[in-house]
């Protein structure tokens, strides 16, 4: 059994090495194929086998196509492409216009989203309609489409203006702001000394003791409230001993527009963000349910300085 494991590990090691070497080779090939004037040199230079020249030219073509595409995507952020709907019954012979939105954050292209349009109306060939898309539901795609890509209600004459460029721009803004907010919440967690959300999901997957957090463990049960408070008092006492009240949890909803903060003295808070990451308003309560107006006033402002403003 042990031998078997050892063998497996050895094989895995070999596989990793092969994969790394292949990656290196592909990388070098891409660099080589991107060399300027390579195509003219290939065409003019003498070759032993005409077939090989053809293969090389094909590879070259593929590489240069990729280079052009990537350059456009990198520089423009929103790019369009054409695909075909394989459905034999698709409208407009399956012609589909795709819009690809790149989200760039902190030196990386973190994700890309697609909106696919078709032309359902044979009379208005320029009228596009959202056919499929990969936009998460926390982005108001429907509202944006209703505003910038309206569908004409009547058949003719009332040509409602569709503005694909504005639509793409607005959608990209929404998506980028969403990613920035998510990153900002993560930064907030790190600033409070908590593991970032990706690490957290990893650790919670391994931890088996509870499957989740019961949210109404006190609302429907009045009898236990006094005992709950006993627990709280214990916590407060121990905290007063150490003289440190720290943040035990920061959570956010998926749209990253609401952030929940829990302190070790059972004080809780929730703030609502604008889309551009400004704290719009907040509500804070101490463990015995008193609203903390002072903190609520201090919370309003940019998200980055939130913890500092609250701890002042």
């Amino acid at each position: 059994m042990f031998d078997q494991e050892k063998k497996e590990a050895y094989l895995q090691n070999l596989r990793d090495m092969v994969a790394a070497a292949e990656k290196e080779r592909d990388n070098l090939a891409a660099i080589l194929l991107s060399t300027p004037h390579l195509s003219t040199r290939l065409q003019k230079g003498p070759v032993a086998n005409e077939h090989l020249r053809e293969t090389a030219m094909n590879l070259l073509k593929r590489q240069s196509k990729r280079n052009v595409e990537n350059i456009y995507r990198t520089c423009a952020g929103v790019t369009a492409y054409k695909v075909r709907d394989p459905d034999p019954n698709a409208v407009d012979n399956g012609n589909i216009l795709g819009v690809r939105i790149e989200v760039f954050l902190e030196g990386k292209f973190v994700d890309k989203y697609h909106v696919l349009f078709n032309r359902p109306n044979p009379r208005h060939k320029s009228m596009l309609r959202v056919h499929h898309h990969t936009i998460p539901p926390c982005i108001p795609l429907q509202a944006l489409a209703a505003k910038w890509m309206p569908q004409s209600q009547r058949d003719s004459s009332s040509r409602t203006g569709q503005d694909l460029v504005r639509f793409g721009r607005k959608l990209r803004k929404e998506l980028t702001l969403w990613h920035i907010r998510k990153a900002a919440v993560d930064k907030l967690r790190v600033a409070a000394g908590l593991p970032s959300s990706t690490e957290q999901t990893k650790s919670s997957a391994t931890e088996q003791s509870t499957y989740g957090k019961v949210l109404n463990a006190f609302t429907s049960d009045d009898e236990t409230d006094p005992e709950d408070h006993d627990d709280d008092d214990d916590d407060v006492v121990s905290n007063e001993r150490s003289r440190v009240v720290n943040i035990t949890d920061i959570g956010a909803d998926l749209a990253a527009q609401e952030i929940f903060i829990t302190w070790s003295n059972n004080q809780i808070g929730a703030v609502v963000l604008n889309k551009d990451g400004q704290v719009k308003e907040g509500a804070f309560r101490s463990s015995d349910g008193v609203r903390l107006k002072e903190m609520e006033r201090k919370a309003v402002g940019s998200l980055e300085g939130l913890l500092q403003r609250l701890s002042e």
Binding site: A29, R62, K65, R66, N70, R73, P86, H114, L116, I135
Partner: peptide
């Protein structure tokens, strides 16, 4: 949600590579 069936290639990353991935030969 709105990319089921064959459109799933748009939801995972198999349709388009990262914009900075220039390796086309592999």
């Amino acid at each position: 949600n709105a990319a089921a069936g064959g459109w799933s290639i748009f939801a995972d990353h198999s349709f388009s590579q990262n914009a900075l991935d220039f390796v086309a030969t592999g």
